[in-house]
Amino acid sequence: MNGFDPADPAATWWFTPGGGVEGAESLEEAALREVAEETGIAAVRLGPPLWRRQASFRFDGRHWEQDEWYFLGRTETLEVDTSGHTDLERRSVTGLRWWTCEELLRTRETVYPIRLAELLRTLLDEGPPLSPIPLGTERD
């Protein structure tokens, strides 16, 4: 997904779909719900958690502290539907696209998590890790 901070539209970046856990949801349930809401793709086979990252940043006038889990997900669906976006997403997301690993490795655009291209290359070459790889903390 491509977006920007409504408080600073000049700075843009790419990021993976995701969001918060609601109620008693498991991490897996939250991941599937968020993918469906943000991309319109409900037919996802969720695999194991791959990576874990903490993020600390300012966005939309607030300071955010996030504990993020990244899962392997597979789908045959390529068409996206953004009708499930929240008001904030409608104000801050400018587009969605699929990337190849090679495109991620070549891009000069900002992509979060920062090491996504090399993490994806390792995943494709070696398969999923036995346990989630800690990525540390990324601060804005």
Rank of each mutant, 00 (worst) to 15 (best):
A36V: 08
T39D: 00
I41C: 01
I41F: 03
A42C: 13
A42Q: 14
A42M: 12
A42E: 15
A43D: 05
A43S: 07
L46S: 06
P48E: 05
P48M: 01
P49A: 01
P49N: 02
L50Y: 05
W51P: 07
R52K: 10
R53A: 08
F57K: 07
R58N: 08
R58L: 04
F59M: 06
D60S: 09
D60P: 02
D60H: 06
R62F: 11
H63G: 10
E65K: 10
E65N: 13
D67A: 14
W69T: 14
W69G: 07
L72H: 14
G73Q: 04
R74N: 07
R74H: 09
T75Y: 03
E76N: 04
T77R: 15
T77C: 11
L78V: 15
D81C: 06
T82L: 12
S83Q: 05
S83P: 02
H85T: 02
T86G: 03
D87G: 12
L88G: 03
E89N: 07
R91C: 04
V93R: 08
R97N: 08
W98K: 05
W99D: 07
W99C: 12
W99S: 08
L104S: 02
L104P: 01
L105I: 14
R106W: 13
T107A: 06
E109S: 13
